[in-house]
Every structure is written in structure tokens, then in C-alpha cells.
Amino acid sequence: MMLTVRFFARLREQLACEVLELPCEPGLDTVAALRASLAARGPVWQQALEDQNVLMAVNQSLAEPATPLSAGDEVAFFPPVTGG
């Protein structure tokens, strides 16, 4: 089973990545663990994801670093929202 990871707005542009399909490996059991794993992909990823303002969602609901992940989940990372 896989994890789907989506990026939006400025983050999507910085990473030049809209969506990733990742194998749900042992250790990728929280949003924080996934974020750390993505940040290790390189300097651009590290810089984009170390921004403390970046928001996270799991299965289309806002999530916390400790929110657990399981196979098949859809995770998203994005900047603070600016609608309205």
C-alpha cells in the first residue's frame, strides 16, 4: 500500500512537485516522520518543509505533527491559507 502526498501553492512551486506516491514504509507512522523523510530529499525540500508555518492535512482534514499515518492515506503540505 502507498501514501499519496500532495503539495499546494507556493510549496508546490518551490518543490516543483504536485503529488508523490510513496511506499508506506515502517517508520513513516506520523505526519512529522513523513515530513522529516521528505526534508531529507535535498536542500530545496529541507528549506521548504522546515518552515514552521507550513500546514499539514491527513485525508483532507488539518493534522498535527503527531497525527498517525496508515497505508492509503492522503497527506498534504501547504502554506497558510489565504482565501476569502
Partner: peptide, 25 residues
């Protein structure tokens, strides 16, 4: 409106005469 502004996943990009920039929260 206050909840929408801080919780709903929308992002604005402004297009001016020369350039485009993301709106900051």
C-alpha cells in the same frame, strides 16, 4: 468568514502589471 480565512484551503496569487506573487497570510 473568519473561519474560512484561516481554515479553508484556498491560496491567492496576485497578478499585477508585470509580475505575479503569492499573497501572504
Amino acid at each position: 468568514m473568519d473561519a474560512l480565512k484561516t481554515r479553508a484551503p484556498f491560496w491567492k496569487k496576485e497578478h499585477g502589471a508585470q509580475d505575479a506573487r503569492w499573497v501572504e497570510a
